[in-house]
Amino acid sequence: MENANSSESSSDLKVVHRMTVIKRIIHWTLFLSIINQIITGMYIAYPFLIFGITPTQADSPVSGVLNSGETYQAFIMTWMREFHFLGAVLIDVSFFGWLYLAFFSTKEPLYKSFLPFGNKINEMYKMLKHYFTLKNKPKTGKYQDPLNAIIFTFFHILLLLQMATGFQMYVASFTGTSAVGAWWPTMMHICTDWTLLVFGGLTGVTLTHLFITWLIIIFIFYHIYIEIWRSIVWKEGDILIPFGGYKYSRDNLKEDESD
């Protein structure tokens, strides 16, 4: 059938399964928690809403002052931090799920796409070239294309950095033990204390955490743009992948045979 297709024109559409349910859950968990992290994190970095009743800090959405009653009723920073921590836990679990699937997924181990071996680098350049010339569209079949794979890997490295810097800030308030035992802060110290040396103390770690947030925001916008772009230009329904798990393909998917 494939041969028949290749002899014909590349016009007929095929349905290609790209994301399993688990991967889609990871995708949307990451999406929701990262949006949550950006909002709550920006608040923690720079509290743009101020609660409490004072005559000079009157009610004004412009100056970011809201009356919430007594001090004990507000606790906005507590909630922001609480949700930031909850989002962090979700991201961490999703990240490690992604890491596992990147190597041991039975469907599509990502490492096959992002490891710069063989013609992967070449394919990446082809895709980049295609972005700027719109010519010679590389085949995008069953697997992720190497350019996306590398960018997604870079994004997950950013997530890992966020985890390391974030846990370093989190463990700062521990004094050697915790409700679940001393192993928890000890583990965090072991895993994240290198950030203090690399980024210059806790303030440097904080600034790095904030700066990487911006890189992640940029990634999100790039990611959405490029998927919409693909959907429009290629007309293969790439934007549908994280929703239904399927996309269309009009390429001659010869690599399917070799699999």
Partner: peptide, 9 residues
Amino acid sequence: HFEAGEYVK
């Protein structure tokens, strides 16, 4: 006051 979101501006 930090937790309550009450800050000196």
